[in-house]
């Protein structure tokens, strides 16, 4: 079709033009991005209750331990593991939703127009997710302390503190790794429901498959610590890690966490936001 053209020249700009001599805006600092991302985790009803559920479940798990555990089991370790289980489930979901909300809810259209450097938005989300995990674990550990004091007072026994600082730190690390796995799946899959399903496949189905393989195939049993990230992580829950176990955690972590995250971020930076 032949183009219909018309004169693009028009009279001089009308009066009252605000010229381009306003000062150039300063770049958006990372702290502000992190603050906004933190706000986004709490500002919907579902987000708020997800966060609240960490504290609620910690309290419920503590109460259940006080009520149901036999006297001999009223130790800090019982409380730590009772509280640890819901945390291990919720923290990764928080990380997943923080990322996938931008796509599933199409909120990214606004987010990435206000902040075109998507890498910084993703980094802010990672930062805030880890911070939330650490704070929730400190809160949960505190709830466990109260539970242990209360439980032993109710039973009239001395409180048993059988979790060392090292062990507690390792449990923290394991939970942060779990959260980062959720974050990785969020970045790679970018859709809420499939990413949550993938997390349960990753954290529940995969270890079972590896476990069966190790049970039936002798050659795999020796290999498993070097290829199974979940298996390498379970060592974090047993007192002290050997140097070899740390290396195994590092090797499997690179394969199952670092590389997929790098791939996911690379895709996020290049993909089209619709």
């Amino acid at each position: 079709m032949t183009a219909l053209t018309a004169d693009t020249a028009h009279p001089a700009d009308p009066a009252g033009v605000r010229t381009a001599d306003r000062p150039a805006p300063a770049p958006i600092p990372m702290g502000r991005l992190a603050k906004v991302e933190l706000r986004k985790m709490f500002d919907t009803r579902s987000g708020f209750w997800l966060m609240a559920s960490i504290v609620i479940l910690a309290v419920l798990a503590t109460a259940a331990t006080v009520v149901f555990a036999p006297d001999s089991a009223i130790t800090y370790e019982s409380f730590a593991s009772a509280i640890g289980f819901p945390m291990a489930v919720i923290l990764p979901i928080i990380a997943i939703l923080s990322v996938t909300g931008e796509w599933s809810q199409r909120n990214g259209l606004t987010t990435f127009t206000l902040v075109p450097s998507r890498g910084r938005v993703i980094a802010a989300k990672a930062l805030v997710s880890v911070a939330v995990a650490v704070v929730s674990m400190v809160v949960a550990a505190g709830v466990g302390v109260l539970g242990n004091l209360l439980g032993s007072a109710v039973n009239g026994t001395d409180a048993v503190w059988d979790v060392s600082a090292t062990a507690l730190a390792q449990i923290f690390l394991a939970n942060v790794l779990g959260l980062l796995v959720g974050f990785m799946l969020g970045v790679v899959i970018r859709s809420s429901a499939p990413a949550i399903v993938a997390y349960f496949v990753y954290s529940a189905l995969l270890p079972t498959v590896f476990g069966m393989l190790a049970a039936f195939q002798e050659w795999f049993a020796d290999l498993q610590p070097w290829v199974d990230f979940n298996y390498a992580q379970t060592a974090l829950f047993d007192e002290t890690m050997t140097g070899e176990q740390w290396v195994q955690l590092g090797v499997t972590g690179i394969v199952w966490l670092v590389l997929p995250t790098a791939y996911g971020v690379w895709r996020v930076l290049r993909s089209e936001v619709k």
């Binding site: 986004k40 919907t44 009803r45 579902s46 987000g47 909300g101 809810q105 199409r106 909120n107 990214g108 259209l109 606004t110 127009t113």
Partner: peptide, 9 residues
């Protein structure tokens, strides 16, 4: 770009 592209919650 799209008024509906907001977190519904």
């Amino acid at each position: 770009l799209d008024a509906s592209a907001q977190h519904a919650g």
